[in-house]
């Protein structure tokens, strides 16, 4: 699975720290999600999609083999 969080964050001109604060998680968690090292919970994914004005499917994209 890949995601567009880094791109969407850049569009909103937000730092990882700012995004983390809005979502109530640590900056390390945002970093891990962006690098596909951690898969967020449904709740966090929904919060992110809500914040960026996208659907979860637009933010997180399934890849071959997932």
């Amino acid at each position: 699975m890949r995601n567009n969080i880094k791109v969407e964050r850049a569009k909103k001109d937000m730092t990882q720290e700012q995004l983390a604060e809005v979502l109530g998680v640590s900056r390390q968690t945002i970093n891990a999600i962006e690098k596909n090292k951690y898969l967020p919970s449904t709740l966090l994914a929904l919060k992110m999609s809500d914040l960026f004005g996208l659907t979860v499917n637009e933010l997180f994209i399934l890849e071959e083999g997932d």
């Binding site: 998680v25 968690t29 951690y38 919970s41």
Partner: peptide, 9 residues
């Protein structure tokens, strides 16, 4: 110190 879902995981 910064407890969140990734830390719990």
């Amino acid at each position: 110190k910064d407890e969140d879902e990734m830390v719990q995981h």
